[in-house]
Design a protein around this nucleic acid. Structure first.
Lengths: 341, 341
DNA sequence: TTGAAAGCGCTAACAA
DNA sequence: TTGTTAGCGCTTTCAA
């Protein structure tokens, strides 16, 4: 394996100093714009000029080394490739990290445990300030032992033992919000197509659904809660049941289920939202925004999860030691829920 | 086993050496498992033990510094958050980078030029071995000047001047493959819903479409080529035109267009693939795999683009200086094209 | 206002 | 087989 040429030799601070005829200390002072050190206006000018002329770039490795702390934040994700969700977490984490002068070291593990171990090792060896450990869907996660060697916060997942800082979406509030969109339109028989998969999303959204019903004085009818595989096929498949139950509105576990539901409903000659109203969950753009009619849904706040994760890591938000921070799932109103009464 | 220390004060090699009673050089030798240096079996054992006991982790920053080269590869992407595509590029790049002992420094710029400059600066300061500059859709890209300070390869984009190494999907072959799927089923009036957006995808896929037709001895009919906004609405909107032209099959610019087309076709009471066959492009999983019927399409090889990018960067594949490397877009057969005759 | 010098944690000659 | 030593490029006292 022939690897590329050895790193080209970049301009060093010493060369800049030599070019100007000052010491490296002086150059360092002006490069970092140290406030306390008084540098002659002329010297400063000449140094700056030399920097520009020689194309000098500070060596972050050396700087980090001498300062004993890197400006890295690690982010391990379990599914960068397969969903847009991880991307949004990364994006949020990066924007926030960047804002505070930090750089993201990203590792994709695709659920592979040894890749995970390797990734964490690598980050530890780069002396990251801390690690964000994230999953693409909200769930309990076993915490790799090595994580405990540094600061870490869980993003979109949490420790079963509740002994770690974590940021997760507020599923219950999300379920309440989604159901509320339907209640607000005057619906009283609202079906809920939940997922078959045991997960916080399943329990939380159901809880929210019931809470919204209760708040509106609508009795809970267990027959209106259906379980389906959380994708298009699942949504399509439960159309007959929904119709049998005489529902006038459906809250779907996610947007993909809603997409399948659309198909089934249409096949029965039913119009959305006039014959039956639909709301989804996730706000998966490619789908939700372009269904016919565009799908009203509730957004999973992945970007905000990423932001909150680094804020916790950096200690920017005051919060109890092992708190589980819940982030709001905001409503995204489009057309499938009908017009508000 | 490992007594916890504040992350800010990690165990150093010197401490390990002191604990064992050897020199740091010896420790370095065993840590890096240097092949040529002979270390006493007993010494090696004791060092390893101390490493485990103290929880020593090598400091990659120091190592990189002294070796004059980091093991970083930078990857700047313009849309991590908005599509799964960037994620696949990252994923491919990372897998390949890791395989060769490199770590990815990822920066998301969301098209923002100053973010881009900052990102590249940051990477340069970390003395990356090189930079992958990637875009989420295949297009010509202006190359930021700073990029030229290091090795770089363009991924999913190319320099208008053709003066840089680049890896892109083979649009023409993709168009040929997609059209071929339809031709193979005996269709002769095949519509092509192209995009309204000027881009390599537009020209390349059209070229491929025509090539496939020609290879099958089918005359090209310009009336069968429609332009539409490349999303669901666009696909939906051109159904009447397609029917008017008497097409028995449609090749869609992408899967989203196909999704809209499905809707429109259904509304006309037409069955896919029996009344009309459809193939898409992109292989956007959430959509293609779960449409009814599942969509036959051609995959955009984002993962492979990432892989090829780092291979080029590392000089693992021999290739001419400013070559434009084209990666195959493989067919993904599902059900919407019908049964092969 | 500037410079000299001591490291940061590690690797790699060269010695022993 | 192992230790000594000289840096890598930079920051940071402390002196001048």
């Amino acid at each position: 394996m022939t690897e590329q040429r050895p790193a080209s030799n970049p301009v060093t601070m010493r060369e800049v100093a030599a070019a100007v005829g000052v010491s490296v200390a002086t150059v360092s002072l002006v490069v970092n714009n140290k406030k306390d050190a008084r540098i002659g206006a002329d010297t400063r000018r000449r140094v700056m000029e030399a920097i520009r002329e020689l194309g000098y770039r500070p060596n972050a490795l050396a700087k980090n080394l001498v300062q004993g702390s890197s400006r890295f934040i690690g982010l391990v994700a379990d599914a960068i490739a397969t969903t847009p969700f991880a991307g949004q977490i990364i994006s949020g984490a990066q924007d926030e990290a960047w804002k505070h002068g930090f750089v993201l070291l990203v590792a994709n593990t695709e659920g592979n445990e040894s890749a995970e171990r390797e990734a964490i090792s690598m980050m530890l060896e780069h002396k990251v300030l801390g690690i964000l450990y994230s999953t693409w869907f909200h769930r309990a996660a076993d915490i790799p032992a090595a994580l405990r060697e540094t600061n870490f916060v869980l993003v979109n997942c949490f420790s079963p033992d509740g002994d770690s800082r974590a940021v997760v979406p507020d599923e219950e509030q999300g379920g309440r919000t989604a159901t509320g969109m339907l209640v607000d339109r005057g619906h009283r028989r609202i079906a809920f197509v939940n997922t078959t998969t045991a997960a916080p999303a399943r329990d939380g959204r159901l809880k929210g659904y019931r809470a919204a019903l209760e708040a509106a004085g609508i009795p809970f009818d267990p027959d209106l809660v259906l379980d389906a595989i959380p994708n298009q096929e699942g949504g399509y498949g439960c159309v007959p049941d929904i119709l049998r139950q005489g529902a006038t509105a459906v809250f779907c576990h996610n947007d993909r289920v809603a997409m399948g539901l659309y198909d089934g409903l249409r096949q029965h000659g039913l119009a959305i939202p006039d014959d039956i109203a639909v709301v989804g969950f996730d706000n998966q753009e490619v789908i939700a925004a372009h269904l016919r009619p565009p799908l009203s849904t509730v957004a999973l706040p992945h970007y905000e999860l990423g932001v909150a994760g680094v804020r916790l890591l950096l200690g920017l938000d005051r919060v109890e030691e092992h708190a589980l921070v819940r982030i709001e799932c905001p409503p995204v109103e489009r057309d499938s829920a009908g017009v508000r009464r």
